[in-house]
Design a binder for these strands. Structure first.
Lengths: 319, 319
DNA sequence: CTGAAAGCGCTTACAG
DNA sequence: CTGAAAGCGCTTACAG
């Protein structure tokens, strides 16, 4: 069965031009002055024949795969990444690039996608481990590295959290650490922002890890120590904290105010509904896409700007 | 700068053999009897030089990309797919295939990954729309289609739900529909299983859509009508239902028992903790990987077996 | 048991 | 303004 897949040669033949011309027209290669008539003919034949360029052949010839690989964070945050990836996907698509995502935990047990896909650029939300960086670079991909420009991500939320609790008049504030080890760095950063904010205002501060199993105990200890407000690492940690309070007979927020972070679905569903911090992830998605494009085109990695200028407090019931 | 990337030619030169031999050794091509000495030399040089075969060149030459694309369901279920994808990734990796995932919502606004990646096989958990199927087939990929063998996914959970509520002695059961349109088909299937189970046992049955905004109203109506137990589409729907009950002054489960589905993180975190159905998604992941491999190797699509034989009720507080 | 050679479907200097 | 040709890095009959 000949003529299985439609190829550029088929289009060239049908349009009565050379394969090169087909390539020039379809890629809108700059510096080629092709007559409108020829261009139109090529385009018409390509669409009539249902021509789809073969991406692997293109990658081999051009040395570029036009793939951007996004390494997702270690922790589960579908609701956090959804918007971000939506925006980044569309932004990259318009420039002719495909965004592929990857779970770093899975890749630890399998060939990493940067080896088997050979993306031009690899990026991530969370900083990548040195070993991972090295492995990516050996594969030939450019890695987008996180510098201080990503710091707003770590700062804005906690600052809003502690500000809100202080505004509410609380003078003894606790921070609820996540028990999940993969989030340790982010967790430490958030804690120290809360601590700084509390201490700067003369409020008492303490912190402890809150998990599904110890929440009740931790909350009781805090309560006995006079803590009236908790800033949690995220909404899950907040939910556990509130659960511990309710099961200890404390009222939320009357006896203990609890403030989450991320505005994940659970925050709105919980009873009482969890007050939390909403970040502008669509904006971050666009910013990351712009960085990836600049780097893919051989440029320097541009500054990401301030993608969290639209972060805001969502006030619900818990604080 | 010459010798940038290590290529099969470099390995061949270093090992003193031809490029073909390198390919045979590295791919363990059957039907080639290569001496152990040569094989060892090739392997040693390949690893010494840090050789990574170029996947696009391989795909072009062999006609196979060794990529399997998984189209994720329309609805947000990170917790549901995590285990499934973990297992499928490892299973496919061992056979030399890479699993790439894709959000169908995003692809509606961008070039679909089956065009830009040219996977050998495309599969999904949810049935694919006819238009999508057609588009995938035009790209040359084989699609794994869902037949009746996927039905256990739709049946097992609801059957466990209704069985548990009947065992608890309830005689008036309601089903909480999800308000999310993308889940309509699955939702209808689950509802009809619950209805059938309830009616077969002589219990009263009714159903309504439960959302963040109408939960209180729906629960009050149900309560007035004598409903004492609710089987929910999933844990989110269960959470809204419980929220409506609590805010109406009803006790859960004493006045109203509520049973979720999926065993998502919210189920364990909620107060009261939500009883739910846990499915064996790791098993489904392995089964799907096996199907993909069979099809990628040119075989017929094998039966998926009964991946939900390990589904079970998780009894917590809400029912 | 091993190697020389064609070919996969593109891109891109280069020549005209 | 357009085309013939080399080359990207592999795989795979085929010949020896």
């Amino acid at each position: 069965m000949p003529g299985q897949r439609t190829t550029a040669t088929d289009v060239a033949k049908a349009a009565g031009v050379s394969r090169a011309t087909v390539s020039f027209v379809l890629n809108a290669t700059p510096g080629q002055s092709i007559s409108d008539a020829v261009r139109a003919r090529v385009l018409a034949e390509a669409s009539r024949l249902g021509y789809m360029p073969h991406p692997q052949a293109r990658a081999l010839a051009s040395g570029q795969s036009n793939i951007v690989l996004m390494v997702l964070p270690e922790w589960p945050i579908e609701y956090v990444t959804r918007q971000l990836l939506d925006e980044a996907t569309v932004e990259l698509d318009e420039a002719g690039y495909s965004l592929v995502t990857m779970d770093p935990r899975r890749s630890r047990r399998a060939t990493p996608l940067w080896e088997s896909l050979r993306p031009d650029v690899v990026m991530s939300i969370d900083p990548l481990a040195p070993k991972v960086l090295e492995s990516i670079e050996r594969s030939g991909a450019v890695v987008i590295k996180h510098g201080p420009e990503m710091l707003p991500m770590y700062r804005v939320g906690p600052d809003l959290q502690v500000g809100h609790l202080l505004n509410l008049g609380h003078t003894s504030i606790a921070y609820a650490h996540t028990p999940i080890a993969a989030m340790r760095d982010l967790d430490q950063e958030r804690m120290s922002r809360i601590r700084r904010g509390a201490e700067a205002a003369g409020a008492a501060f303490r912190s402890a890890e809150v998990s599904a199993t110890n929440a009740q105990e931790v909350v009781r200890t805090w309560s006995r120590a006079g803590v009236t407000a908790v800033a949690a690492f995220n909404d899950d940690t907040a939910a556990w904290t509130i659960g511990g309070a309710l099961r200890s007979g404390l009222r939320v927020p009357d006896d203990l105010a609890v403030l989450g972070h991320d505005d994940s679905p659970i925050a709105a569903m919980f009873v009482p509904a969890i007050s939390t911090i909403h970040l502008d992830l669509a904006g971050l998605g666009r910013a990351l896409a712009q960085q990836a494009l600049a780097v893919a085109r051989g440029g320097a990695q541009p500054d990401i700007g301030d993608p969290f200028s639209h972060a805001r407090l969502i006030r619900r019931e818990s604080a």
